[in-house]
């Protein structure tokens, strides 16, 4: 980037005494929402035959990739590094322009909506990194999650605290001071504050210990049991497929294998190619 736009020339930006980090958010606020069409039938959330990449002219990363999740299900996207797992999820969330394919949520075609509008439409998204407000308290993080709500959200906050009791104990502490696993709980809790219709998690267990990972998975199962569809991208393929109702194996931006979590675990080819035998 920056080659054609002189305003984005990055020279001199390392001097943090005059400029702050984090400028130029990756969410494009100048984009406008397109129309929403009714598209009945199909799964609750579906990205059908998605093809696209980053930016207006970037190379395609996804090639006709289809991801779907239904009510009460946990769907997991797994695959080797660089397979486009996170990209597929970002495509569902509207963070890249699709050249082909469409995204439907609850019977509505939302392909033309911006990520901000998709949050309002009922998508809860937990990014892989930078998914909390580090200098704000746990409680303030949750409050910010409920920013778009105009009704009383205290009930939802209690539900989040019931789900993650440790957060209730630490609610006056800055989220940035918590451990990795606790931060992820804050991030998931923040996303739940909008009362989303579907929860999307981008590698929720990245960088946490195996014990914490198991606990996080338990919590995610608990969330899914309430009827909320959960879609997640996972690096720890084996553990993730064990809890998944539906699994998608992506290879080079395309669907390689699709099936139930158990089915994929039993599939000899899937095991051989990237579960390590």
């Amino acid at each position: 980037m920056g080659g054609e736009n002189p305003y984005q020339d990055d020279r001199g930006n390392r001097d943090r005494s005059i400029t702050a980090d984090g400028a130029g958010a990756s969410v494009d606020v100048t984009r406008r929402d397109g129309p929403v069409a009714v598209s009945p039938g199909g799964p609750f959330l579906e990205g059908r035959a998605m093809t696209g990449g980053y930016g207006k002219s970037g190379p395609d990363i996804l090639h006709g990739c289809t991801i779907a999740v239904d009510r009460g299900e946990i769907a997991v996207i797994v695959g080797p590094n660089g397979a486009g797992k996170s990209t597929a999820m970002k495509a569902l969330f509207g963070m890249l322009d699709l050249r082909e394919g469409k995204v439907t949520l609850d019977g509505l075609d939302i392909t033309a909506l911006t990520p901000q509008a998709r949050v309002r439409a009922g998508m809860g998204f937990v990014p892989q990194t930078h998914n909390i407000f580090p200098t704000m308290t746990v409680e303030e993080n949750l409050e910010m999650g409920a920013f778009i709500r105009t009704d009383d959200y205290r009930g939802t906050m209690e539900q989040v605290y019931d789900l993650f009791p440790i957060l209730k104990d630490k609610r006056r502490q800055n989220a940035g001071e918590l451990s990795g696993g606790q931060r992820q709980q804050v991030a998931v809790g923040r996303a739940l504050m909008t009362q989303p219709k579907v929860l999307m998690l981008d590698e929720p267990t990245a960088g946490v210990s195996p014990i914490v990972m198991d606990e996080l998975f338990d919590r995610i199962i608990e969330v899914a049991r309430t009827g909320l569809p959960v879609l997640m991208v996972e690096q720890n393929a084996r553990q993730a497929l064990e809890i998944a109702d539906k699994g998608y194996v992506l290879v080079q931006g395309a669907n390689a294998h699709t099936g139930t979590g158990k089915g994929l675990l039993a599939d000899a080819e899937v095991r051989k190619s990237f579960l390590g035998g």
Partner: peptide
């Protein structure tokens, strides 16, 4: 609420935008 949204924006611009700020 406005003050908190300013702190959130300062902390993490992307997440603030996704939170509807």
């Amino acid at each position: 609420r406005t003050g908190k949204s300013m702190r959130a924006f300062s902390d993490n611009e992307d997440l603030a935008l996704l939170s509807g700020i």
